[in-house]
Amino acid sequence: MIDEEAGSTPKNPHPARLDELDERIVAILERDGRITNADLAAALDVAPSTAHARTRSLVERGVIRGFHASVDHNRLGRGLQAMIGVTLRPGARHDAIVQFADEVRRLPQVLQLFFVGGVDDFLVHIAVEGSSDVRRFVVDHLSAQQSVASTRTSIIFEYHRNAVGAPFR
């Protein structure tokens, strides 16, 4: 299954109405996106054909946008993660925002890119080998852009995703 591009408009922009079975399917798939249809059906106490049809419906309605691998970046030699707040210069904001997002989200160090309201315009979540790589990323890829007014870097010691702890070791 291919994930839709982040920020793309779902097929149906209205909130999906989910019944109890749909909610249970979503909860199970959030915990284990690789569960087999047979195991999903058993966990739900429904026929495999029902589990398959309901999951397909959730995908078609845009509730489930993709299935993703949880990667251990430490095993890839990118054990240091950071969240970098980026403030853009005032002015031609729309063009600067679009250009910044297009350029930064394609960088291999970037895990996630958030366009936010508040002090920062963007939060850039990266994974790199060490602190010198964080510095190099900020200097080469963020501060070097004319549209960037300032950056604030926070090192991530530990994170939690969907109630699952993922400490850095």
Rank of each mutant, 00 (worst) to 15 (best):
L18A: 12
D19S: 13
L21F: 08
E23M: 13
R24A: 13
R24F: 01
V26H: 04
V26I: 14
A27N: 12
A27D: 14
I28V: 15
L29A: 09
L29W: 06
L29E: 05
D32W: 04
R34P: 00
R34L: 14
R34M: 10
I35L: 12
N37S: 10
D39E: 15
L40V: 06
P48R: 03
S49H: 03
S57I: 00
V59E: 09
G62T: 13
G62W: 08
G62Q: 08
G62N: 10
V63Q: 01
I64S: 04
R65H: 04
G66T: 12
F67W: 07
A69S: 14
S70I: 12
S70T: 11
H73M: 14
R75M: 06
R75S: 05
L76F: 08
G79R: 09
G79W: 09
G79T: 13
L80G: 05
L80V: 15
L80Q: 15
Q81T: 09
M83Y: 09
G85S: 12
L88F: 02
R89E: 11
R89W: 00
A92D: 14
R93K: 14
H94T: 11
H94C: 02
D95H: 07
D95I: 01
D95A: 15
Q99C: 00
Q99S: 13
F100L: 05
A101Y: 01
D102A: 13
V104S: 01
R105F: 05
R105S: 10
R105C: 08
R105M: 11
R105N: 12
R106I: 00
L107V: 02
L107Q: 10
Q109F: 01
V110C: 09
Q112H: 15
L113Y: 11
L113D: 05
G118R: 10
G118W: 09
F122G: 02
V124N: 04
A127H: 12
V128D: 03
V128I: 10
G130L: 07
S131F: 14
S131Q: 12
S132H: 10
V134F: 08
V138H: 01
V138I: 12
H141G: 01
H141A: 07
L142E: 02
Q145G: 03
T151N: 06
R152T: 09
T153A: 04
